[in-house]
C-alpha cells in the first residue's frame, strides 16, 4: 500500500520532465524499488530464514558428524541458496502487476530492458547479497573447511546475481498467473544447472587447494550473458503477460 504515493510521484515526475533519460529512469526505478523493499523488511528476512531453516534440517536429516557435513556443505549451501532465490522471485513483479505500476512502466518512454534490470538489481540487493553474507555463518554450522569460505562468498556473490537475472524471466512469464509460484520454480530450475555446477565445484576446488579462477571466470561469463539477455527475455515476457 505504501508504494502508491511513490508510483504517483514517479508519474508526476514523468509528466513534468518530458522525457527523462534512460539512466534517470533506471535510477528512479532502482530508488523506488529499494525504498519499497526496505519498507517491507519482514519480507526481506524470509529468504534468509528459509536458508537458515533448511540448512538446520541437513544435520537432522543426515548426520551431525563433522566429516559428512563437511563434504556436503558446499553443494548443500549452494542448493539451498538457489531455492531461497527461487522462492523470493515470485514477488519480483507481482505487486507491481497487481497495482498497475507495471503497465505504467510498459507505457513509459523508457526502454523496458533497463527497468527490468533495475528491478532485478534491487532483488539481488535484498536477497542475493544477504544470502551471500549469511553463507559463512551457515558454513560454520555445516563445518565447512576453512579454505572453502572465501570461494563460497565469491561464487555466491557472482552466482546469485545470475540466479536473480535468469529467475526474472520466470517471474515475468508467470506474473499474469494467479498461482505462479510453483510453476516459476519448475520453469526456471533447469536453467540454473550450469550456475549450480560451477558455483559448487569452485567451492570444492577451493577446499582441495586448487585454483578457482577458472570457475569464477565462467560464473562471470554467465553473469555477463545473463545481464545482456535475461532482461530482454523478461521484458518480452512482461509485455505478453500484460497485453495478452
Amino acid at each position: 500500500m505504501s508504494d502508491i504515493p511513490l508510483a504517483e510521484e514517479q508519474l508526476l515526475r514523468s509528466r513534468q520532465l518530458v522525457s527523462p533519460g534512460v539512466w534517470a529512469g533506471f535510477l528512479a526505478t532502482l530508488r523506488r524499488d529499494t525504498i519499497i523493499a526496505f519498507r517491507h523488511r519482514g519480507e526481506m528476512m524470509n529468504p534468509l530464514v528459509f536458508f537458515l531453516m533448511v540448512i538446520t534440517m541437513v544435520p537432522l536429516g543426515i548426520s551431525p558428524e563433522r566429516i559428512i557435513l563437511a563434504t556436503l556443505a558446499p553443494g548443500m549451501i549452494w542448493v539451498v541458496a538457489l531455492l531461497a532465490t527461487l522462492l523470493s522471485l515470485d514477488s519480483l513483479f507481482r505487486s507491481d502487476f497487481e497495482d498497475g505500476t507495471l503497465e505504467q512502466l510498459l507505457m513509459s518512454p523508457q526502454p523496458l530492458y533497463f527497468q527490468v534490470l533495475a528491478k532485478v538489481a534491487v532483488h539481488w540487493l535484498v536477497t542475493g547479497l544477504p544470502l551471500t553474507l549469511m553463507a559463512p555463518l551457515l558454513g560454520v554450522m555445516l563445518s565447512l573447511p576453512a579454505a572453502g569460505f572465501v570461494p563460497l562468498c565469491y561464487t555466491l556473490l557472482l552466482g546469485t546475481a545470475s540466479l536473480s537475472l535468469i529467475g526474472a524471466i520466470g517471474a515475468a512469464l508467470t506474473v499474469a498467473l494467479r498461482k505462479g509460484g510453483l510453476l516459476l520454480s519448475l520453469v526456471i530450475m533447469p536453467l540454473y544447472v550450469p550456475v549450480l555446477i560451477f558455483g559448487a565445484s569452485a567451492v570444492n576446488n577451493g577446499i582441495e587447494g586448487f585454483p578457482i579462477g577458472g570457475q569464477l571466470a565462467v560464473l562471470g561469463a554467465f553473469l555477463a550473458m545473463a545481464i545482456v539477455l535475461a532482461p530482454m527475455a523478461a521484458a518480452g515476457a512482461l509485455r505478453i503477460g500484460i497485453n495478452g
Partner: peptide, 25 residues
Amino acid sequence: GVIALQEAYQHQDTANKASAILALV
C-alpha cells in the same frame, strides 16, 4: 516446463507466446 506453462494460461494466444519465449530461453 514448457508444457506446464502452456497448460497454466487460460488464453491460448498468451500461452503460446509465453511458452515460445521459454523455449527460446
